[in-house]
């Protein structure tokens, strides 16, 4: 008996603080959030706990124009950000992998943006992406003006339709170096023998990449997709640093912020928070399942 206890007890004691902390501060508060989201507590100060209303808040929010807009913005941002960072990161890694001189230096340069917070990135890019055009242009629009490429001047994040694509540009700038590092590790993980074998079998260089290396990069790509995807769906700091709380760049997280702190409507804020969590879960759960299956194999 005692020997058996001795086997598992120290280990359990060691991890129990983190189990308790995560249970309370992650899952406990997550559960509380869902509970608030299913009540009619639309007033923060009054001492009403709120009545249970089921999924009413989850349904009614779709009739709000602002919610539809923020979801649309989130989708555009995610598509441009994830796609852009993956393609650019892959391309940079591809160039590195070809054995460029001073690779270490380039690697550091491309990774550096990741050391900056989204807030700092946002403050700088807010200026770069100033939407004034013509004589009053500053930032990138001014650069385009100097270069005689006035046709490239546009409203950036103030463009009513594709503004969120511009918002994704700083995010791509910041994260593509990290994705490059992931892919570079992936490239390096492909044994040289495999490439040689493929070449001996008559593959040209393109086919080596297409048929041998890319399939072997699939796990890396998936990891990158998950990392970028969940950052993108939760994006808040970058948007706030670039444009503050304006509808023109509204995303679910900023909507949640104004619902809670401006309109003082906890139930609506909790509902939006719940949707953000659910959207990330949809991203992550397939990955976890896939990982678990791989582990069992």
């Amino acid at each position: 008996m005692t020997t058996r206890v001795r086997r598992w007890l120290p280990g359990l004691l060691l991890v129990s603080p983190s189990i308790v902390l995560i249970a309370v501060f992650v899952y406990g508060l997550l559960g509380w959030n869902f509970k608030v989201a299913m009540t009619d507590k639309h007033n923060e100060i009054a001492e009403i706990p709120g009545n249970f209303v089921g999924l009413e808040n989850f349904v009614s929010i779709w009739s709000e124009e602002r919610w539809g807009l923020s979801v649309r913005h989130s989708i555009i941002f995610t598509a441009v950000f994830v796609g852009g960072a993956l393609v650019l990161g892959w391309f940079l890694a591809f160039l590195m992998e070809k054995g460029i001189r001073g690779e270490g230096g380039f690697r550091a340069i491309y990774l550096f943006p990741m050391a900056i917070s989204f807030i700092a990135t946002g403050v700088v890019w807010r200026w770069l992406m100033n939407s004034a055009t013509g004589e009053r242009a500053v930032g990138l629009n001014r650069l385009f003006g100097y270069l005689g490429m006035d046709f490239l001047q546009w409203q950036w994040f103030r463009d009513p339709d594709w503004g969120m694509a511009a918002m994704a540009v700083p995010a791509v700038w910041q994260m593509s170096g990290y994705i490059m590092a992931l892919f570079l590790a992936g490239f390096r993980g492909v044994p040289e023998e495999l490439r040689e074998a493929a070449r001996v079998d008559g593959c040209n260089e393109w086919q080596v990449y297409r048929r041998v290396i890319l399939p072997m990069l699939r796990p890396v790509t998936l990891s990158a997709l998950i990392i970028l995807g969940h950052i993108s769906l939760k994006v808040f700091d970058l948007v706030v640093a670039v444009s503050g709380k304006q509808i023109i760049t509204d995303v679910p997280a900023t909507f949640m912020w104004t619902a809670v702190f401006d309109a003082h409507d906890p139930a609506k804020g909790a509902t939006i928070a719940a949707y953000i969590v659910l959207s990330v879960v949809i991203f992550i759960v397939p990955y976890l399942i896939w990982n678990a299956r791989k582990g069992n194999r």
Binding site: E65, R66, P160, I247, I248, A259, A263, D265
Partner: peptide
């Protein structure tokens, strides 16, 4: 009050894009 002001802010933010007076008034 806060909720009303916040709703007016949303309506004006949406109007800045749509420029639709009827929709603004409805909101």
């Amino acid at each position: 009050n806060d909720a009303w002001r916040s709703a007016i802010n949303d309506a004006v933010g949406l109007f800045q894009q749509s420029q639709d007076v009827a929709k603004l008034q409805e909101a």
